[in-house]
Design a protein around this nucleic acid. Sequence first.
DNA 1: TTGTATGCGTTATCAG
DNA 2: CTGATAACGCATACAA
Lengths: 338, 338
Amino acid sequence: MRRQPTIATVAEHAGVAVSTVSRYLNGHYVSQSAKQRIAKVIDKLGYTRSATARNLSLRRTGCLGVVVDSTIDPWFVQLLGGIEEELTTHDTSLMLASLELRGHYDASIVMKWIREKRVDGLIFVKSQKRERPLLQAAADAKIPTVAVSPEGVEHSQVVRSNNVAGGAAVADLLVDLGHRRIAFAGGPDYSIDSKDRLRGLKSRLEHLGASLDPKLIFSCHSWEAEAGIEFGRTLFSKPLSITALVAANDALALGFMRVAQQRNVRIPQTLSVIGFDDIPESALVWPGLTTVAQPMRDMGREAYRKLFQKVEMLETPAVVEHPMELIIRESTGPARQN
Amino acid sequence: MRRQPTIATVAEHAGVAVSTVSRYLNGHYVSQSAKQRIAKVIDKLGYTRSATARNLSLRRTGCLGVVVDSTIDPWFVQLLGGIEEELTTHDTSLMLASLELRGHYDASIVMKWIREKRVDGLIFVKSQKRERPLLQAAADAKIPTVAVSPEGVEHSQVVRSNNVAGGAAVADLLVDLGHRRIAFAGGPDYSIDSKDRLRGLKSRLEHLGASLDPKLIFSCHSWEAEAGIEFGRTLFSKPLSITALVAANDALALGFMRVAQQRNVRIPQTLSVIGFDDIPESALVWPGLTTVAQPMRDMGREAYRKLFQKVEMLETPAVVEHPMELIIRESTGPARQN
DNA sequence: TTGTATGCGTTATCAG
DNA sequence: CTGATAACGCATACAA
């Protein structure tokens, strides 16, 4: 049984030194004649270089770490799709870390990666304050990071979307539809995303002569649908005064809609609902959820690229902000009149 | 700037040979005194071994390949969660390949992995006939594989769930609720999963004195919600004769339900709907989708373990079959009487 | 332009 | 039980 051909095999067959083959492989200077011979030998032998050996020699791992609360999050899944596109073209592998994999927050895995230098770079998704120690540790270990998150973090580049503009777009739509009694179901209190979306909504409403009653600004304890369900139960336990609900993301909106439908609240005749993100599920339910789309796939790709640029030591703007787009489906309509 | 400590650094500080440290690291025989000194030095230096160098020496990559039609598939996402749990405890990294990443089938990435031996093992998710060449190539390259798929594949171990029993459970429920006019919306024609679910449904129905009209057995061109929507449009273009629809998976059922609701078909009063898998979305919509749950997370873990066992050359049963569990939500109810 | 020699950090073999 | 030493496969100064 023969072993895989190595760079030495190729060199021997081509009658050149190993270093020449290496130079050829890396696009450095090699004479035409040598080039041709090497190319032919490589083709004949079906040689491919060992990524492991290459990484060892280059003192890197060829591995990217991605950190997120939960890999099950549909929003993250989209982002991962974008990251994957880049991965396959750059033959680097992936390490996934769910910070809440087993129900409770546990950053030890990521800490271990950093300590052991298991990754060449780290993408933090939806990172928040509690991730600060990780970011810091990564910086100390000189591992580049990019955060897909609204918050500018020291030592770390940022990919985010224009939440404020998104919030404003929602205000435009709702006012246009005649809504004046509007509630906002925010994400967790610490979330800057949520705050920014609210800010955009609020200021544009006021700009348009409408307003947002502070008593109608709520927050949910998580970003997940379950929290939206909980919020819905609370909201519907009292008489319904509002005509429109803006949820800080689609998952919350979807959870909320489930409760609404369960209680026969007609959407959008009685109540309009609108979310943020445009996860696939939003287009799947009936009525389809009107939402402010975020280009998650693009953001995933962008995150990867920024990381690599950093690895390659190029300077790029610290923050890349992606546009959001309003997508109108069936969950929004004219405000009811009573 | 100092470099990371290596095994040589440790050896030197502990006054032993490199090989002794290596033996210590791998749990081979080392004298108590040496053990203690080495342990102390490692702790003081904060030494961790280089996975890359280790992999090179061990002639492996420390990387697992996962192949699937689309990583966006919610069913797959659950499976990935299970795989991830294993990954983090075995410090191996991941390479993801969507066979339909850019809209069309493209297996070249996976072929490349195999050719270049970029992975130590391969998990094929929902693999079908068209993946045969890949499986074969992997076998030729002596890369172990496990298929999360109903089909027994040569050279490859299999993790699957008991689709036939799942189909039977559906039959039990529907007959119990008085349904006699039942339709089945299958997955793609080639799908064994779909066939098995249908088989279980059909034979149990007949066993119970009911039956499945062959004219009411349909198939969709994909497993995705979009195909369920398409199916719904077709079905509702004619007068509705059935009282219950069994979809071959949840995504199809969800797509179908969207159309039904859009056309004001009441679920379950007019029509009961039932699916397979129990993806999270099924619990989120209203009415919640009654479904036959598949332990995706467990299956993901199992797939990883079987792969590793194979790597470690242990013999295990070629097929592991996981049980399915009926989960009754709001989308099923008594058959209407007209 | 090419070859030589050395380093990357581990593991494994084989004497001692 | 331990210590040299040779792989592992590739990259890169440096010399020629």
